[in-house]
Design a protein around this nucleic acid. Structure first.
Lengths: 195, 195, 195, 195
DNA sequence: CATGAATGAGAATTCATTCAT
DNA sequence: TATGAATGAATTCTCATTCAT
């Protein structure tokens, strides 16, 4: 009755790839089954529904992400170090769960309206609190500039990090840490050459 | 054949809003028709198909965008001014065609594979050429930093601009020009306070 | 309110051509209107419905056909002359109303079930009576062979005449009278050479 | 992909009956499904589309027909025997695949224009070559009359044979061979009594 | 665990028809 | 008489889901 968790995970990984590549709505259960080498109906031995696959993919990803974020925040680093750590963890998460992040990026906005995916909205609130709070602390501590609209800055930073999931390929030229370093350098110091 | 261009444009604007809000695939023709106050079948008096609505929305947007970009590039400004002008035009375009940009952002990646939407890929190539070329000129002219991976920088800059379409609301607190200014300040000078 | 009969006839001729070429079901009102150089809705000034066009085409054809057939039958010719006259009139009718005959040939079988087209069934009964009766008279008079199944012969003869509407082109190589002559020669004398 | 060929064949036989009775265009998928005792959507487990059902029905029929015709032609009989054998095989084919023949008769003309059904046109060319060639051989050998237009004769013979599918009922009074015999007798010897 | 064969709800699209102008 | 713009019912097809084997 209860199928092996390993098989489930394999299948979820497969499903996540297809969801990420084609979009959740455009992905038919048949496509997932094809990719997994089975028939569409057989997936229902492992999962209740297509939606529950999506649910499990997204919640697993967010659980893991928040475990890391919470560890960073618990370390009570200074604002700049906190931002650096959050960004680095974010790119590592993209490295580990690229498909899940890509799905999150594309689908979370309209999924949030459904009760089942309410945790996406909760997460976003927590997210905003963590980042915005850190930025504010940084401004107060005169580590970050005070002349920028802070919500605007937050949005720019947030989106740029996650949208990287749409082009990032694991095993590519740059490690997640290297990408994080370059990204932080750009955001913190700017791309203009200083004299 | 295609009667009253005004009515078409009205309907396309309606369709674009729904596509942007719900995603192209998740948008049924019925939803568009509801939003337009007519029956689903009636849309087919004005358009061949749901896909051709999408096509017209995206190509109209890209045509207009490229008219602006080409004007900027033809002005042969220096690299920094070029980047500033391109970013400003981009945010203006988001202001004018928010829905179209949001659709473009979400759907263009998988649409590109279809022959009908080949122009999306063409546009992206031109896009990359314009931005990357300008960044390279800037590095050569010692206006931009040489120590950043330029393709990575390109991607960050590109994504940050367009992703704004997902949260931007016309008539909001900030004008497109103000958003562009803040964004450019962040990207060019960085958010870290200099001493 | 009541539109000119000339325009109606023009439009019916156009409609008949399209029905014959594409089949009644596959013919959209729009195609007829296109062929007539007007918009689909405009046809409804002249006709109640697509079906009433078909009805008028078929009943006009049958009325004319029966006027001729009745004249032949009223002349009380001998069996062979009757067959010859009926066949000749049939080919003349194909010449005059090729489209209507082609439609009749293709559609009458399933139209017969609808009450509105009951006259098609009536006509077929009359038809059978006329032909079969003539053949029987011929057999009795020892003009036609007695060893053939007469109903089978009737069917063969009937079908061969009408099916000609599917390939006949008015103004072609052979006049209807010539086709009738050849056809009669074949059916009456056979194609085998006698010694 | 295409499971259980037996089920497919059953369903194709059902579909063929409905197509033959109502015409391809007038046949809705729902009617076929009703006749098969299932829901319309279920047919799509077995077939790609309504059109592919038609395609399979017609191509199966033509493949079988040509296997028989080719065997006849390969036997190199004399002209009269060839005609007799072709006609007999044709009536046998009507006996076996009445529905398919009826569909072919009614629909092939306008289907030929579609690329997918190009093989219908090819078949017709081969068909004409076989029959016309045999008739010509017969005229040259002074077995058939020389005074008849040979193309006209071909058309009459061809059409009369196939149109029989519209009234033939398997298991009726006459076997296909008996019908062929009577038909051949009529066409070869004529219906007029000789003295 | 997986398959084969369905179901049934909805999707996009077509089309005859209507009607105010 | 004809047009432009709709309606609404029907049609083909898709797809998540079910379930006996």
């Amino acid at each position: 009755m209860s199928p092996s968790p390993e098989r489930r995970e394999e299948l979820l990984a497969t499903a996540a790839e297809v969801f990420a590549a084609q979009g959740y709505n455009a992905t038919t259960v048949r496509k997932i089954a094809d990719a997994a080498g089975m028939l569409a109906g057989s997936l229902y031995y492992h999962f209740d529904s297509k939606e529950s696959m999506l649910d499990e993919i997204l919640s697993t990803f967010l659980d893991e992400l928040w475990a890391r974020y919470d560890a960073v925040l618990a370390a009570r680093l200074d604002p700049r170090e906190t931002i650096e750590a959050l960004v680095t963890e974010s790119f590592r998460e993209i490295d580990r769960h690229r498909a899940a992040v890509a799905i999150y990026q594309k689908e979370s906005k309209h999924l949030q309206t459904q009760p089942r995916f309410g945790y996406l909205a909760d997460s976003q609130v927590k997210f905003e609190k963590a980042w915005l709070g850190t930025l504010e602390r940084g401004v107060a501590a005169e580590v970050f500039r005070a002349d920028l609209d802070i919500r605007l800055t937050y949005r720019f930073v947030r989106d740029t990090v996650w949208v990287a999931a749409s082009w990032y390929r694991p095993g590519g030229q740059h490690s997640p840490e290297e990408i994080a370093r370059q990204y932080l350098s750009m955001v913190l110091e700017g791309i203009a050459l200083r004299e």
